[in-house]
Amino acid sequence: MTCMNHKHILQIKNLSVTFTQYEQGLRKTDLRVIRNLNVSVGEGELVAVVGSSGSGKSLLAHAILGILPQNCDAEGNIWFQEELLSPERIKELRGKKIVLVPQSVNYLDPLEKVGKQVRKEQNEKSLRRKQEELFDFYKLPQKTADLYPFELSGGMARRVLLTTAMMESPRLIIADEPTPGLHLEAAKKAMSHFREFADKGNGVLLITHDIELALEVADRIAVFYAGTTVEEAPVADFQSVDTLRHPYTKALWRALPQHGFHPFPGNQPYAKDMPNGCPFGPRCPQLTSECEGNIQEQTIRFGRVRCIHAK
């Protein structure tokens, strides 16, 4: 196991999400957007899932919260604080112990004042006090409660979304691209609140396309490729290409501008054109016939990797 010292808050094993879509006419196709995905978050940890946008990683957040679109099937085992969750239990926990911090203010109701939304339309004294405390904590002026979402600046909106999430004292935050369009310094600042939250013994699952940001703020990074996590590694392993395990992660490392910006041929396959076995197979220099079979995840040097050649 990767985090031996502390307990898991979240553990996901073999999560798969399949969409059913119409093609032309009446033909339906199944698109397996997420396949056999594993990821875990320990107490006090901030784990980043890094993948390119449009690759379906947001669906991971939606699956954990049970808010996937209607036309898809999902299966997989999700443990929250060592408890295996049923779909019903997920519905009980979401918004309370597991909360989502979404991408943008668009998730706020534009016609309702911020304060009311933060309190979910309730007006009890204890909730008001909690809201005031949280506003203070996130350095939002108390009068923010009387503003409408469009009156918030980008930074304030992010903190309001965070306040909303914190009202129920959650244990796990799932942050889906919480810093869109922010440059690295600003994004790091925005992420500091998540860091503080994790440091209190909670968990954060950060879903992002920005590997540079993930390298700055996360404890561990799960690399998402073609619908699955190919490698889950402590952030320190990204110091050098030799400590990384999966050939895709290595290629990713070499492609960073500060590491030479080396290109790598081929494309991430679209869900419809998925190869047998290892999704990275067709691009992989180490491809052998065994790669077309079922690839088991193995644990190497406190990191997990889905590659039979990894050392």
Binding site: S53, L252, A255, P257, P263, N267
Partner: peptide
């Protein structure tokens, strides 16, 4: 290229 994965980014930029 910010929305793309790094490998695709470097492929595109190098070309």
């Amino acid at each position: 290229s910010t929305m793309l994965d790094l490998i695709t980014q470097s492929q595109i930029w190098n070309f």
